[in-house]
Design a protein around this nucleic acid. Structure first.
Lengths: 347, 347
DNA sequence: CCCGCAATCCGAAACGTTTCGGAAAGCTAG
DNA sequence: CTAGCTTTCCGAAACGTTTCGGATTGCGGG
């Protein structure tokens, strides 16, 4: 391992001045700086992270803590997150650590331990919950972090999110505008903030349209094809089945399509469907039959700002510069149609 | 952050003795050790990794470097590796770092940089190639590493592998024993050691049975359903089509099944099929129709020994204790049958 | 000639840990 | 009583970096 001392010797300077030259401090002669940098790179010098961390408090290592859950090992979303974040932090010369916690561990204890070790500069928090203890813990300890999403209650921390409430408003409003009044919502697990926000948006549109909220038209669960299938099957068997569905996810929509097909119902003739599209690699709503209309917002756009914001938080950049709520886009295809007028009781 | 000094103060001992007590050195009174450990845990002391690494050279952090490749983001195998290793190292109180390198980076330069930074205790190398520069580099620099697989040429480094040559021998021999003489091999990308080893095994059985090697019966590629489909379709269209197939992977077999079905050929009536089964979560050979006979060796069994061997390598345990070649198991189902005697030229 | 200032540089301390070398105390054997 | 051993402890150095405080040089202005 080549150290600062080696570089210093090779250019006949003190360790101090070499350090200052390499870190672009002000009081070093421009020509000296070049000499030092040349020597450093020709010797293959890399600053020792441990030593730097010890004195400056910065290690250049950030972490994502993920707790195991059923299906963890085949979750494309999680995989997308890891690959995306890892690449973005690498690009910025930082190390990205993935720590997998067992399902039965107390997650706050895990953070506590990781923080105590003192090797980490910050954390990225994904899939925030409505009252997320991780956010509370890190905020109280003043440890830098960035959230992929945001809690509805307070948002005074770095985050990147999409406007999930507006996603739902946009989708559901299009359905009410087409005359639909019985609209099903197949949503993610209820405690996640995005599920909550979408439910809010859904209720808001219903209220504005004067449609009473009907809880039998709302389902929650892990966002899988299976959830979509079961939920749709189930709802369509109810006394007052929905004439339109908003699915929180393309996989859910896929399941709903399958359920409707198995019931002999046509899309959009009998039931209109809209989904939210995260643009994950394994699902392509344009190839559905009929092609699926979506609120579109690629998850892959999250990684650069998340990495940027976390490094910003570590550098104490002002909060305003390190939060963003991105817009989605509506892509109209062929899975929605005006409500068919027929002789049925109004829900 | 609570430091050794804090613990020392609380028990009225020197920092030295506290350190020795915590690390189970010999020259500390048994009762003192308990007092120290109690105090440490009640204060919530966690050793500072950076400081430890600086003086002892150990950080407790190991890394896997993965270079992006097409389909990287939806590769179940890679995901299985990351999840498995991460959990195993966590269990041992170590940090597991995933570093994603861009596709166009020089991989040795990446290792060089990571090593220079001096924060890593060792590496795990997956998917070794026939002459793997990563192994050569790490070995020459005497940096601890463990290989998931092994190079055929030399094996004097920690590794965990299955006997891929024998996997192929076992599978192919069963086919020749059933009378088959034209046997197709749909294999992984040629430069991986396991592909090479399986090819060796395949050729060995052929040689023993006096069957000349026919290169039109061997295909290589990324082990996907698509490869299986295309290769099988292609081979069956040849002048002397195979009467049996050995697929390096269950996904490949799935593709082969589809190809044979589309040609109106029956399994095992017209063509016998055997595959190697890594027991990945998304593929279940027992549910094929007909159920697929396999050489079976769950990939998930690799992670504990790999983690164990790498920590062993870091602790300078003797080589013999930190290498293993595991046995596979043959599971007979219904995808093979004796060669039908018919009027055809002998290949 | 002297003072003050700017531009460059450097020594030494500090971060938290491990470890080397030795010290103190108690005991046993001669 | 003393020499030597064992048990238990400690001071100080070391790891590689950053940074505080100050030192040196050269220059212009008075």
């Amino acid at each position: 391992m080549v150290t600062l001392k080696d570089v210093a010797r090779s250019v006949n300077l003190s360790v101090t001045q070499v350090s200052r030259a390499l870190n672009d401090h002000s009081d070093v002669n421009e020509e000296t700086r070049r000499r030092v940098k040349d020597a450093a790179s020709s010797l293959g010098y890399e600053p020792n992270i441990s030593a730097r961390k010890l004195v400056s408090g910065r290690s250049g290592i950030v972490a994502l803590v993920e707790q195991k859950y059923p299906g963890f090992t085949s979750d494309f979303l999680f995989f997308e997150i890891v690959a995306g974040l890892s690449a973005e932090f690498s690009r910025r010369g930082m190390q990205f650590v993935l720590h997998v916690a067992e399902a039965d561990e107390d997650i706050i204890a895990v953070y506590q331990k990781l923080v105590g070790i003192g090797a980490l500069d910050g954390f990225v928090i994904t899939k925030p919950m409505v009252n997320d203890p991780r956010i509370a813990f890190l905020a109280s300890r003043k440890i830098p972090f960035v959230v992929h999403g945001r809690m509805p209650s307070h948002t005074n921390y770095p985050h990147f999110d999409i406007d999930n409430e507006f996603v739902a408003v946009d989708a559901v409003k299009r359905l009410t505008d087409l005359g639909h009044r019985r609209i099903g919502l197949i949503n993610g697990i209820a405690h996640f903030t995005y599920s909550r926000a979408r439910l809010e948006g859904y209720r808001k549109v219903l209220a504005e349209a004067g449609i009473p909220f009907n809880e039998t038209l709302v389902r929650n669960g892990a966002m899988t094809e299976e959830l979509g299938y079961q939920s749709a099957l189930d709802m369509m068997g109810q006394p007052d089945p929905p004439t339109a569905l908003f699915c929180s996810n393309v996989s859910i929509a896929q399941g709903a399509y399958r359920a409707l097909a198995s019931l002999g119902l046509s899309i959009p003739g009998d039931v209109s469907v809209i989904a939210h599209d995260d643009a994950l690699p394994n699902t392509e709503p344009a190839e559905f039959s009929p092609p699926l209309s979506v609120t579109h917002s690629p998850l892959s756009r999250s990684w650069p700002p998340l990495a940027e914001f976390l490094t910003g938080a570590i550098a104490h950049r002002p909060l305003a510069e390190i939060q963003e709520v991105a817009r989605h886009e509506f892509i109209e295809r062929s899975s929605t149609a005006p409500l068919k007028v027929r002789a049925s009781a109004q829900g």
